[in-house]
């Protein structure tokens, strides 16, 4: 199975070239196009209760699509937001994804939902997070570009920009500065991440766009 991410970074999509017998899992509604040689099977994303948890707490669909190539063929996966797509390969390691980021993975990857804590919720990063673990490649998307930071000690991220992080990362939400600076700098709350570990950030924030759009709706 050959996978390439095309049209990066603004309108990235995943192009999968499949050989007979190849299998890939895709988030419901992520498929943009596919060959007729590829068969699609919708199934619960884990067991029924696990799927329910992923739907309501992980921001993902209750169903996941399994694409099986009966002969040579291709699939194109995309995401609803304009932005980049990143691929990581799990080798017995894990990664936490923010709600809605997951797009596709190899069938050897395990998908689970974990409690993210109130600090994550306050930081607009979601009360729950999707945990991908096991072996194989995972593709996830973001709004805008994706950049990676290797964290040794501490790093500050504006809320809503964190897309994915390794389980060795500890997250705290706090004010950007003092009370005055936090409220009048426009930064308000920020997420403080503590290493060691790697974090994936998106260059745009969807809530930022929503607030900006909202201001025009209010004016008119």
């Amino acid at each position: 199975m050959q996978v390439t991410v095309r049209n990066r970074p603004a309108f990235a999509n995943i192009h999968v070239k499949m050989a007979p017998g190849d299998v890939i899992l895709g988030e419901a509604d992520a498929m943009a196009s596919m060959s007729p040689t590829v068969q699609i099977h919708a199934r619960f994303n884990g067991g029924f209760f696990s799927a329910l948890a992923k739907r309501y707490f992980g921001g993902e669909s209750m169903f996941i699509n399994e694409f099986v190539a009966l002969d040579e063929g291709e699939i194109v996966f995309t995401q609803p937001l304009p932005g980049d797509i990143e691929c990581i390969e799990l080798k017995g390691t894990s990664l936490f994804l923010q709600p809605g980021a997951f797009i596709a993975c190899e069938p050897t990857v395990h998908l689970g939902v974990g409690w993210a804590g109130f600090s994550s919720w306050i930081g607009r990063e979601g009360l729950f997070r999707l945990k991908v673990s096991g072996q194989g490649r995972v593709w996830f998307g973001a709004y805008g570009g994706i950049f990676v930071r290797e964290i040794e000690d501490e790093y500050v991220v504006d809320t809503g920009h964190l897309v994915a992080y390794e389980p060795t990362i500890h997250i705290k939400v706090g004010m950007a500065g003092g009370i005055f600076s936090s409220f009048f700098s426009g930064e308000g709350l920020v997420t403080r991440v503590y290493g060691p570990g790697r974090i994936y950030l998106q260059s745009r924030s969807l809530s930022g766009l929503a607030a900006w759009t909202d201001s025009f709706l209010f004016m008119h």
Binding site: F96, G114, A116, Y165, P167, T168, I169, H170, I171, Y194, P196, G197
Partner: peptide
Amino acid sequence: MGGASGRMVFCRNPDRSLTIFCE
């Protein structure tokens, strides 16, 4: 101790060039 769950144990050597971690 730290990590996303708060119970990840990090064992480091003095110059922090090696970290072994386990949850």
